[in-house]
């Protein structure tokens, strides 16, 4: 089963012919993802990477039956691209673009609210179901197939976690990079919920960072399920000073509740196995699963 994307996903690439879009589309195709085409307004009818280009998402969906879209459109136009994909009936939108204005994302999130679509990102590494589909920019070889789901705000930290999981003799069912922006399509709780309900996922690794209350909400949800699957958690930014933006626009400590220490405390109280050091994710998971 897995979640969000699998071998049956038909993927289109928005911003197909740009530098980023081209490079990562090629990587996804090499990984085995079923990329059925791309969208670059004005270049419809041409071919790129041996796949058809369309002028609009609607046209791409009608012609190819695409149900997943990955967005590499530049920040000024990315919110529009998200809304276009949702309007065309795409079921899963993965927005990689970093640097979208908050106001634009507010509009886009509000627009897709009542549509049957799941938005992952923006400013995220994407989603990977190892061995089936990579809809993102992560190095595919790090992710070996298995039964551990990963939810993370960060790109390279997701790779780090995956690497440790694999080195601990385990593997990944689906890894979801939810993104580091203040407004994202699928917050931590919603992503964890997908994995909690996935029969092919036995355990979950949840990686957060300072800022916001997403991890707290996810923790309360996990507790409400009766901790039916073990969750290992880590929060990056224990040493971050308040009020400073640490790379991700969402990573600013605001009040007392969104520090790493406060989040970790809430997570622990909700029965999550919290690791203090990011080097201990894999080992802790292995220990927890042996119990």
């Amino acid at each position: 089963m897995s979640v969000l994307v699998n071998k049956n996903s038909k993927v289109i690439v928005q911003g197909f012919t740009g530098t980023e879009g081209s490079f990562h589309a090629q990587q996804m195709i090499e990984y085995g993802t079923n990329v059925v085409g791309g969208v670059t307004p004005g270049k419809g009818g041409q071919k790129h990477l041996d796949k058809p280009i369309f002028n609009s998402v609607e046209e791409a969906v009608q012609t190819t039956g695409a149900d997943v879209s990955i967005i590499f459109v530049p920040p000024a136009f990315a919110a529009d691209a998200i809304m276009e994909a949702a309007d065309a009936g795409i079921k899963v939108i993965v927005a990689i673009t970093e640097g979208i204005p908050v106001k634009d994302m507010m509009t886009a999130k509000n627009y897709i609210k009542n549509k049957k679509v799941t938005l992952i990102g923006p400013n995220c590494p994407g989603v990977i179901t190892p061995g089936e589909a990579k809809v993102g920019i992560m190095p595919g070889f790090v992710f070996k197939k298995g039964r551990v789901g990963v939810v993370s705000k960060s790109g390279t930290l997701t790779y780090e976690a995956a690497d440790q999981i694999v080195k601990a003799g385990l593997g990944i069912s689906t890894a979801i990079g939810i993104g580091g922006d203040p407004i994202i399509g699928t917050p931590t709780k919603e992503a964890v919920e997908l994995l909690m309900n996935d029969p092919e996922t036995d355990a979950i690794v949840m990686i957060g960072e300072i800022g916001g209350n997403y991890e707290a909400l996810a923790s309360e949800y996990i507790k409400s399920t009766g901790n039916k699957k073990p969750v290992v958690g880590f929060i990056a930014g224990q040493t971050a000073p308040p009020g400073r933006r640490m790379g991700h626009a969402g990573a600013i400590i605001g009040g007392a509740d969104d520090t790493a220490a406060a989040k970790m405390k809430i997570m622990e109280a909700c029965g999550i196995h919290v690791v203090q050091s990011p080097a201990d994710i894999g080992e802790t998971l292995a220990k927890v699963l042996k119990k």
Partner: peptide
Amino acid sequence: YVKLDGNVGCMVNGAGLAMATMDIIKL
């Protein structure tokens, strides 16, 4: 880059991993 007051510098790719690396330094 954000300047802090400590004694171990770090250079990392990715914001999340960079914060995690700072945490490792502290630990």
